[in-house]
Amino acid sequence: MSAEEWNEERVAETLLAAEAERRDLGRFTDEWPGLDLDTAYRVQQLIVDRKVADGETVVGVKLGLTSRAKQQRMGISSPLTAVITDRMVLEAGVPLQTDELIHPRVEPEIVFVMAERLEGPGVTGASAMAAVGSVHAGLEVIDSRYRDFSFALPDVVADNASSARFVVGADGLDPKGLDLRLEACVLRVNGEVVDTATGAAVQGHPAEALALAANELGRRGEAIEAGSIVLTGGLTDAVFVHPGDEVSVEFTSLGAVTLPVRGGS
């Protein structure tokens, strides 16, 4: 397709079809130079609007590219934001069905549930943390619609930052008294340790990532609402999973979450 034939609506429709049909795509930025970051966020919103029209409910926000090193490589200074809906929620103990996805990968996350609305500009790490009601262990399943997870920055933003599924530990803790910078996690697949990290992997502290995201959303006239679930960003690299696997993460204070992986409904 020529560059002149692409527009925001066509990119959104193509990504939605790829998700529904479980097929991967090449980068849009290779064909459409007009897909810049602001345009990509408009595409993302078109996709979310379509999902809501189809009966899904927005439940929160996910943050992506929360590693400072990755941000520098991508030429940005704050995390990406994406939207999560109720269809992406996996209840504890419910298996991930790989036949609903393309090439899923899993990463451990520190998850916030917001007690208060958070709106930029001017949000700091301290004021962001003061708006958090509870902190939970979590696992996020990402599933890029791009072939081999290969994309430029606007591509991944348009694709709602590879959002797919997530599971959140039921037992949240009061953020007061927690040192999330030092909160450690161990990621296991089939009982074998595959990675470890601490909360410092997320922007130095997850509250700093939350503040930067709130300020960026504020620039676009948006806010993080009270009651929202916030996936603060992967603590480790994401690992590919396959039917029969069992993924688990264990945190120092936040407890553990386990995700069985299956191949059929």
Rank of each mutant, 00 (worst) to 15 (best):
M1N: 05
M1Q: 08
A3Q: 11
E5V: 03
W6K: 02
N7T: 02
N7Q: 00
E8G: 00
E8V: 11
E9D: 09
R10L: 06
E13K: 10
T14I: 05
L15T: 01
L16N: 00
L16I: 02
A17R: 15
A18G: 08
E19H: 00
E19F: 11
R23I: 10
D24P: 00
L25Q: 09
G26S: 03
T29F: 00
D30Y: 00
W32V: 07
P33T: 05
L35N: 03
L35Q: 01
L37T: 11
R42P: 03
Q44H: 09
L46E: 04
R50P: 04
E56L: 14
T57W: 03
V61Y: 13
K62A: 04
L63M: 10
T66W: 06
K70F: 07
Q71E: 04
Q72W: 00
R73H: 14
R73I: 13
S78M: 01
L80Y: 06
T81G: 06
V83N: 02
I84F: 11
T85W: 11
E91K: 13
V94T: 15
D99L: 05
L101W: 03
I102V: 14
P104I: 10
V113P: 00
M114Y: 08
P121I: 10
V123C: 11
M129E: 08
V132Q: 08
G133M: 04
H136Q: 07
G138F: 06
G138M: 03
E140S: 01
V141Q: 14
S144D: 09
R145A: 15
Y146T: 02
R147F: 05
S150I: 05
S150R: 15
A152P: 03
L153I: 12
P154L: 12
V156I: 15
V156S: 07
D159A: 04
F166H: 12
A170F: 09
A170P: 04
D174S: 07
P175H: 06
K176F: 12
K176A: 15
K176H: 13
G177T: 03
G177A: 05
L178F: 13
A184L: 05
C185G: 13
V189A: 08
N190K: 12
A197F: 01
A197N: 06
A197E: 11
T198G: 10
G199T: 04
G199R: 06
A200Q: 13
A201G: 03
V202F: 00
Q203L: 09
A207Y: 08
E208D: 13
L210R: 09
A211I: 12
L212A: 14
A213N: 07
A214S: 10
E216A: 15
G218Y: 11
R220M: 07
G221N: 09
E222M: 05
G227L: 06
G233K: 01
T236S: 12
A238L: 08
V241M: 03
F251C: 03
T252E: 11
T252D: 15
G255T: 10
A256H: 09
A256N: 09
P260V: 10
S265H: 13
